[in-house]
């Protein structure tokens, strides 16, 4: 299989993992390692004066893993730029998952602020991976603004609904000159495999693994699904027909 290349960095794995919603940091780390992912998201939060929490970072920092800080919690491009600068300082990476979703009910990304922030952050030297609507026109605008990938949603974050935006994802994949990472809403390995068969470059999965009965086993299932889907895409799927076509010889050999 081809490696995935983003901003000059090569990835063998095409599965990105989010770190939210796991029952424990240990379980999160085991799932990350089992998935063989090389890209893991991390959020930021304000800390208390009497901070006593376990440091989650120690569970996700591994030599083979690219940290992908996100801007979750910001509502505008201006806030996103400050969050990005804090993330770069905190984690020592200029890679950024840009996410601007002001509405807490559906967490849908604000396209206008996302485009504005992408333009600004690219100028500031960030490798910007924007979470965005499955809008082919917007995705081209983000690409023109210098986004390193586009990350259109399959369905609202955390819903596990699958590829509800499938028709638009197909157009985005067809038109994009940067990797297309399907992000949000992927709820089952079959959804991830379907996205990869369509030609998506990668999938970002969090909730479906974190809330599974056995997150480590589910991480392995997603790993296998993403590999299977990508391998099928590269192999070239057979065409879909209407009329039956025999796959065995129809000559009458019994006389």
């Amino acid at each position: 299989m081809e490696n995935l290349v983003i901003a000059g960095r090569e990835f063998k794995s095409r599965l990105f993992l989010g770190t939210g919603k796991f029952n424990s940091n240990i379980l999160m780390e085991q799932s990350i390692l089992a998935s063989e992912t090389e890209m893991v998201t991390v959020a930021m939060k304000r800390i208390d004066m009497d901070n006593q929490e376990d440091d989650m970072l120690s569970h996700i920092v591994h030599p083979h893993i690219q940290l992908l800080p996100n801007t979750s919690g910001v509502r505008t491009a201006e806030e996103a730029v400050l969050a990005a600068q804090l993330a770069r300082e905190a984690f020592g990476t200029n890679w950024l998952k840009l996410e601007i979703h002001p509405d807490p009910r559906y967490l849908l990304p604000d396209s206008i602020e996302t485009l504005k922030a992408t333009e600004e952050l690219v100028k500031l030297g960030f490798v910007v991976l924007p979470y965005c609507q499955a809008d082919p026109v917007l995705c081209k605008r983000l690409e023109e603004a210098g986004a390193a990938t586009v990350m259109p949603l399959a369905a609202p974050i955390g819903t596990n609904k699958g590829l509800r935006t499938e028709d638009f994802l197909r157009i985005i994949i067809e038109q994009s000159n940067v990797p297309v990472v399907v992000d949000a809403g992927i709820g089952a390995p079959s959804h991830a495999a379907a996205a990869m068969e369509m030609g998506a470059s990668a999938c970002l999965v969090n909730t479906a693994i974190a809330v599974a009965g056995n997150p480590v086993e589910m991480a392995i299932a997603f790993k296998e699904a993403v590999v299977a889907g990508r391998r099928a895409y590269e192999a070239g799927l057979g065409s879909v027909g209407v009329i039956a076509e025999a796959s065995s010889p129809l000559t009458a050999f019994l006389g």
């Binding site: 939210g20 999160m28 998201t41 991390v42 939060k45 901070n51 905190a90 969090n206 909730t207």
Partner: peptide
């Protein structure tokens, strides 16, 4: 002053 640190998130 705002002080932030790493947190779990997707």
């Amino acid at each position: 002053i705002v002080v932030v640190k790493a947190a779990c998130g997707g």
